[in-house]
């Protein structure tokens, strides 16, 4: 009875030390840039890029498996910064493709099931049970998570309309 306990105890101790030693000696340096890229990403884990959250996306971008333009909430601004950080060239899409979209809830169809507000990563949807929900534009990243979650299909994504306050000059066409 005592022998196996001692043997197992000693084995555990030895293997533990071995593991601790191996962790020090054979340590694989994780790429610190992944961490930095992850911090630059929106960290809303919306999944629009096709990866499981911003951490996985950061890894993919650093490994070259994903394009820096893959993050719609980040838009062109983020893509330019990422490309600069990683020293890679960038194929920016047409600006029109990168206009941020916003969720709009059709109040005629909304039943107030709160499913959309539960999945919203930024708490941009307000509304209580059986009350019509609304979207806070400022907080919406256009991640479409709510669009998929809505059982009534009453959420659509629409680009932010240009107003006098958000309008900017177009690029001059001349020489």
């Amino acid at each position: 009875m005592v022998a196996p306990i001692v043997v197992l105890y000693l084995m555990g101790l030895i293997l533990g030390f071995l593991l601790a030693y191996a962790a020090k000696v054979f340590k694989v340096e994780s790429n610190p840039i992944v961490k930095e890229v992850e911090e630059m990403l929106p960290n809303t884990h919306c999944g629009q890029c096709g990866f499981a959250g911003c951490g996985a996306a950061a890894e993919a971008i650093v490994d070259g498996k994903a394009d820096p333009t893959c993050c719609p909430p980040g838009g062109n601004g983020l893509a330019v910064k990422l490309a600069e950080k990683l020293g890679i060239s960038l194929q920016l899409g047409d600006d029109a493709e990168n206009i941020p979209a916003f969720a709009i809830i059709n109040s005629d169809l909304c039943t107030g099931c709160t499913r959309c507000s539960k999945v919203c990563p930024t708490d941009a949807i307000v509304g209580a049970n059986k009350q019509i929900h609304g979207v806070i534009r400022k907080a919406c990243t256009g991640c479409t998570a709510c669009e998929t979650a809505c059982p009534e299909d009453c959420i659509t994504m629409q680009p932010d309309p240009t107003t006098v306050a958000t309008w900017t000059w177009p690029q001059p066409s001349a020489a």
Partner: peptide, 21 residues
Amino acid sequence: LKKQSDQDRRLDYTRQLSEVK
């Protein structure tokens, strides 16, 4: 430049929101 800085500010804001959530 204004668009870029607006988007940066927005990104910071939504990031904060998602962290809070």
